[in-house]
Amino acid sequence: MQNQFHIKFWGVRGSIPCPGTDTVRYGGNTSCIEMQVGGERLIFDGGTGLRVLGESMLAKMPVQAHLFFTHTHWDHIQGFPFFVPAFVKGNRFRIYAIPAPNGATIEQRLHDQMLHPNFPVPLQIMQADLQFYDLEIGETIKIGELVVETARLNHPGVAVGYRVNWRGLSAAYITDTEHFPDRLDENVLWLSREADAVIIDATYTDEEYYDDKCSKVGWGHSTWQEAVKIAKAAKVKQLILFHHDPSHNDDFLDRLGEQAALAYPNTILAREGLSIELMETTKRFSIPKQITNDR
């Protein structure tokens, strides 16, 4: 991976895990993606997909990685207590997030979710070298040749989006953000600017978002139609719709994907097992026929 920019999806759902026969093709695990870039491993969010990623790492220990959290709502941290490599001495993980509005650090929040009566063992049982870093929104992180940029997202309790830059290639991870009714979000546009790949919150359709009976306005998420607007304005090369609503089954997502691809041809839907390799002249995509075969 020294000369590659590789992205893999381990969890693509929002809100709550939704395993079952109707979600087999896209997967039911919550948010977790992995980027292996220039010899560095970056992990974004620790939803239940992190457990599966952790299992795949056990064959090549010791391991080290940088783990970035957008925020700490349950669907983005509930896989961390089941991340087996964190329990193994000799592994090393640098963990980044912005402080919560009440000032709680990422270490405090991960610690608290593993306290009784919520969990049987405390964070201190983890034997890996865990190093915690509290970010400021807008801060830039340099990791070797990589530059990771950050920006505020529009989500209850505050969330942060990320953009990874390496050798002229870039990928943005922008989830749990709600669009504005009268303008495009400048922070989202900035993170997305001419990116090779943008992974973006597209939890709802416009019809669901503006539904008179159960409006989703103010819930902190966006629609695929708004994602397309961002992609067009920011001249995104590949748009990847992410954070699928748990009520959207495989057939629903198939139809949604067809509509989105018509609106913006370079659009695909995130699914567990999806692998993307960014290259200077072309992009290669690998979508497994059955998710379980690519874990």
Rank of each mutant, 00 (worst) to 15 (best):
L67V: 15
S286H: 12
S247N: 15
A59R: 11
D251T: 12
V24W: 10
F69S: 04
C32V: 08
V84I: 04
Y209S: 04
I174L: 06
V37R: 10
V160A: 07
G54F: 09
V147A: 07
T30L: 00
M35P: 14
E272G: 08
V88C: 11
H66G: 13
S222L: 03
V236F: 02
Y264Q: 03
T282A: 15
P120V: 15
N154T: 12
P81I: 07
I141D: 04
H248R: 01
Q259G: 09
P156S: 00
D176M: 14
K142Q: 00
E34L: 15
L146S: 01
I98S: 14
L130N: 08
T21V: 07
V52N: 10
G47I: 05
W166N: 06
T150F: 05
S286C: 08
G11T: 02
T175G: 11
D129C: 12
T70E: 11
L189D: 02
W166C: 07
A270K: 00
S192A: 11
I77V: 12
I33S: 15
L123K: 11
D254C: 13
Y96M: 06
F87H: 08
F5H: 01
K235V: 14
G46F: 00
W224S: 10
A65E: 09
V198C: 06
T175V: 14
